[in-house]
Simulated assay, not measured.
Amino acid sequence: MENETGECKEEQNNLTTGCRVKMEQGQNKSTDEGFVILGFNINGTLQNIFFALFFLMYLITLSGHLAIVVISLVDPALSTPMYLFLRNLSFIEICYTLVFVPEMLANTLAKSKRVPLMVCAMQMYFFIAFGGTECFLLVVMAYDRYVAICHPLRYTLIMNQNLCMQLLLVAYISGFTISLGLTMLIFSLPFCGSHNINHFFCDIPPVLFLACSDTHVNEMAVFLVCMMILLIPFVLILLSYVFIANSILRIKCSQGRKKAFSTCVAHLVVAVLHYGCAIFIYIRPKASYSLNEDKVVSLIYTNVTPMLYPMIYSLRNKEVKGALKRVWGRTFVSVTR
């Protein structure tokens, strides 16, 4: 009897050890092989159409933001704090789309869609870093508009060059620091099961789905970070526009109200587009995630809205359109000489 009991215990220990070894081997295998970006399940002609469409959109995005960066640098009329922040917003959007759009386009046509673990981690880090910096920068831009409209006589005194550079520095440092901590927290998890990411880049929710341990703490950290990056800044922006709207309504001249409104509407539209999509994707519990649905929303959030930003700012802004004409005119004259 004792021999049988001893044999059973030994067999159970061997079985437990074997399972643990297999789990560790699976974890090592997933870690060594990295991840596979599944992307969109399209083939043939539809795949080529998808590639051509989003490649064209990417070229429009890059050219639009590069144009804003160049004209705000070379035209003296756009040397105000408003256009300093707008230039940095366009610079961030260029870097932001460079993080994943070229790889998304390459994966559309590639047979092998495997991504090394470190590359995936770096992609997530820069995605969160530039996205977070943009969130903080939009708050800074809202504050700039608030001072310009609610305290116009003190605008140049308040929004001096030192304060502008300090606000920019805080936005960049905050975005990149928060991203580092969050990325390290997510990639400290063991990935011992499937290594297929049901997305077109290494985003937070689909990577968390692949973890084979309890992710409750990580989900809470993601939720708190998203509250800090998304919800709180968005509430601050909406609050600032309550004061801005109140000041605009008190302007007696209709032309003055129209001018004040036109300088703010573009920023408000961009903020609603940016925060609205991001809040929908990231600020909700894991149980309510639908990766296929999120993939479509992310496609709009990361490809369509960045393309619209230069159009929104330039079409509603006479100063930007005037500067663009002046720069284009000088360039054309210098070429024809």
Rank of each mutant, 00 (worst) to 15 (best):
M1F: 04
E2F: 04
T5R: 12
K9P: 01
N14L: 11
T16E: 15
T17G: 09
C19A: 11
Q25P: 00
G26L: 14
S30H: 05
S30D: 07
V36Q: 07
G39H: 03
F40H: 03
N41V: 07
I42Q: 01
I42Y: 07
L46F: 02
Q47F: 00
F51E: 01
F51I: 02
F51R: 02
F55M: 02
L59I: 14
I60Y: 13
S63F: 14
L66I: 12
V69F: 11
D75F: 12
P76Q: 05
P76N: 06
S79M: 11
M82Y: 03
F85R: 04
N88S: 03
L89V: 08
I94F: 11
P102I: 06
E103C: 07
T108E: 01
K111Q: 14
L117G: 04
V119C: 13
Q123L: 10
Y125H: 09
F127L: 13
I128V: 08
I128Y: 10
G131R: 04
G132L: 06
F136S: 10
F136Y: 07
L137F: 02
V140C: 08
V140S: 05
D144G: 00
Y146I: 02
I149Q: 08
H151G: 12
T156D: 14
N160W: 00
N162T: 13
N162E: 15
C164R: 09
L167H: 06
Y172V: 09
S174T: 05
S174R: 01
G175V: 12
L180N: 12
L185K: 11
L185M: 13
L189A: 12
L189N: 08
L189V: 05
F191Q: 03
S194W: 05
I197S: 14
I204G: 00
I204T: 03
P205T: 00
L208A: 08
F209V: 14
F209T: 14
C212I: 08
S213P: 15
H216E: 15
V217K: 15
A221M: 13
A221V: 15
M228Q: 03
M228H: 03
I229S: 01
L231S: 01
L236H: 03
I237Y: 11
I237L: 09
I237D: 02
S240Y: 08
S240K: 06
S240F: 05
A245V: 14
S247Y: 02
I248F: 00
R250L: 11
R250S: 13
G256R: 14
G256C: 10
R257E: 01
A260R: 09
S262K: 09
S262Q: 12
S262V: 11
V265P: 01
H267V: 00
L268R: 03
V269L: 05
V269I: 08
V269F: 04
V269T: 06
V269R: 01
V272T: 05
L273F: 15
L273P: 00
H274K: 11
C277S: 08
Y289L: 07
S290K: 09
E293R: 13
E293K: 14
D294P: 04
L299K: 02
N303K: 09
T305L: 07
T305N: 03
P306C: 08
M307G: 01
L308C: 05
P310K: 03
P310H: 05
I312W: 06
I312F: 09
Y313W: 06
N317V: 00
K321P: 05
K325M: 04
R326L: 11
V327H: 06
W328T: 13
F332R: 13
V333N: 14
V333Y: 10
S334C: 10
R337E: 04
